[in-house]
Design a protein around this nucleic acid. Structure first.
Length: 205
DNA sequence: AGCGAGATCGTCT
DNA sequence: GACGATCTCGCTA
């Protein structure tokens, strides 16, 4: 069954953690979510921290709304709006469907680099500002439940200068599609504790 | 592998 | 006028 609005009507950190392993697609193109970050209203790093503005209006919309913004004048970042102006930044996907289209948009072959980063992911999935404010519960979006449970690790958020101490970055343990690996001693917050053999998911490096 | 610079522009100071 | 929830390339080692 498809995802519900209730899934997003929770604190952003909880939603960010639970999104790991879901299959996310736009117009049929996408893959498994392997990395996310949570931002909340009382969080200095969040775009909603200083209240409603024209630019962040989508963050103050209902849960399950897409919030898309342009960063550094050229890239775009995709977020899922949660309860109370919170949001989850989608940072990386393991490409599964539409590899060909993604490779064309990225002008790049290596599957490893197609969606491993918020800007890369947005480019590969064709995310434009036109999707800002759209409902994640309708076309062209699709979110399918995890096929299997993921071991989820957490750590500090990346690329921010304020509220750097909050451990609100979540990722699938040792996925090779992360924008950046988690430290070896990263805290496991869900799923089975990793065992001896350091086996990468997917193909070998 | 890691570091530094450039690209590029709307929003806020 | 400065900066940002980033990416890529070129250089050093």
């Amino acid at each position: 069954m498809p995802i519900s609005r209730a899934f997003f009507d929770r604190p952003a950190p909880a939603v960010a953690q639970d999104l790991i392993g879901w299959d996310f697609r736009i117009a049929g193109i996408g893959g498994v979510i392997v990395e996310t970050e949570a931002y909340t209203r009382d969080d200095e790093a969040s775009h909603s921290f200083r209240g409603p503005r024209t630019a962040n209006a989508a963050m103050f919309g209902p849960p399950a709304t897409a919030y898309v913004y342009r960063i550094y004048g050229l890239h775009r970042c995709l977020n899922f709006v949660c309860r109370d102006a919170g949001a989850v930044l989608i940072r990386a996907l393991e490409p599964v469907s539409g590899l060909k289209e993604m490779a064309e948009r990225r002008a790049l072959e290596d599957a490893r680099l197609l969606c491993s980063g918020p800007g890369r992911l947005a480019q590969a999935l064709g995310v434009g500002l036109g999707l800002n404010g759209a409902s994640l519960l309708e076309e062209p979006f699709a979110l399918l439940p995890p096929q299997e449970a993921s071991t989820v690790v957490t750590g500090l958020r990346i690329g921010i200068s304020r509220a750097v101490d909050r451990p609100w970055r979540f990722g699938r343990h040792r996925s090779r599609f992360l924008s950046k690996p988690f430290p070896p001693d990263a805290t496991v917050v869900a799923g089975k504790r990793p065992l001896m053999p350091r086996q990468q998911e997917g193909e070998s490096r």
